[in-house]
Amino acid sequence: MRERQDARERRRAREFEAFAGGAGGRLLRTALLLTGDREAAERLLTRALARTYAAWDGLGGLGGEDPYERTRQELVARYARSARGRFRLLRPFRRGDLGPGLLARLTPQERLVVVLRLHEGVAEEQTAAALGVSVERVRALCARAVLTVAA
Rank of each mutant, 00 (worst) to 15 (best):
E42C: 01
R94A: 15
L27I: 03
G36I: 02
F19L: 01
G64A: 03
R10S: 10
A151D: 14
R81L: 15
R86P: 02
G22E: 12
T71G: 08
V113P: 00
G64K: 04
G85T: 14
G63L: 07
R11V: 07
G85N: 13
A145D: 05
A80L: 11
R10H: 10
A104E: 13
A83T: 00
E3A: 15
V135R: 14
G132Y: 08
R8P: 00
Q109D: 10
R29Y: 07
R43S: 12
R78W: 09
R78K: 15
G61C: 05
R88Y: 12
T35S: 08
L147I: 12
L147A: 15
A129I: 07
G96L: 12
L90P: 02
A54G: 13
E74C: 04
A7K: 09
R95D: 08
A77M: 09
E110P: 09
P108C: 00
L103W: 04
V135N: 03
D6W: 10
S134Q: 08
L102W: 13
T148N: 13
R11M: 07
L44R: 04
G96Q: 14
E125C: 10
G121N: 05
R111S: 02
L49Y: 10
E15T: 04
D57H: 06
R72G: 05
L141P: 00
T127G: 06
R81A: 15
T52S: 11
L27K: 01
R70D: 00
L118K: 08
V122W: 04
G61P: 06
A55W: 02
A54I: 06
E74F: 08
L141A: 05
D6R: 14
G25A: 10
A40Q: 06
A130N: 08
R139H: 01
R12G: 07
L33C: 08
E136V: 09
Q126C: 07
A83K: 01
T148D: 14
T71P: 08
Y53C: 08
T71L: 01
V122K: 02
V114L: 10
D57G: 11
A55M: 06
G58H: 01
W56K: 05
L32H: 04
A31G: 02
E39P: 04
R38N: 05
V113E: 03
Q126W: 07
G58A: 00
V133I: 12
R29N: 08
A80I: 01
V149N: 06
A41W: 04
R4V: 11
D6P: 02
F93I: 05
V146T: 13
R84M: 07
E69F: 07
E65W: 03
L59G: 12
R12F: 09
E3Y: 12
R139S: 03
A143H: 06
V76I: 14
A40P: 04
A55T: 05
